[in-house]
């Protein structure tokens, strides 16, 4: 099976990125909601948690994509040099 410029492990890590974004967002909102219930400040912590979760999720997606791109570029450069 053709895997393109990525290894099996890199494919798995790339496929995980979407779930990581969703999980970060959900954890942020739930954490904020718990704090809001605790301090009776609804909706401020929920909104802040949602924003923080989204930021963390996007950071993971961007760093993951950057890592995959660097790995693919490295592999392609190596193949070019071999030719």
């Amino acid at each position: 099976m053709a895997l393109g410029p990525f290894t099996k492990q890199e494919h798995l890590e790339i496929a995980t990125l979407g779930l990581e974004l969703a999980c970060a967002e959900t954890l942020g909102v739930l954490g904020g909601w718990w704090l809001d219930r605790h301090f009776n400040t609804l909706p401020w912590f929920t909104l802040a948690g949602g924003a923080a979760g989204f930021a963390a999720g996007m950071y993971m997606v961007v760093t993951g994509a950057h890592k995959a791109q660097a790995a693919a570029a490295g592999k392609l450069n190596k193949e070019k040099a071999e030719k």
Partner: peptide, 17 residues
Amino acid sequence: PLEIISLIIKVCVLALR
């Protein structure tokens, strides 16, 4: 802190998947 949160989320995602 973002990297520490990333590690925690990666472990959570293992369970969730």
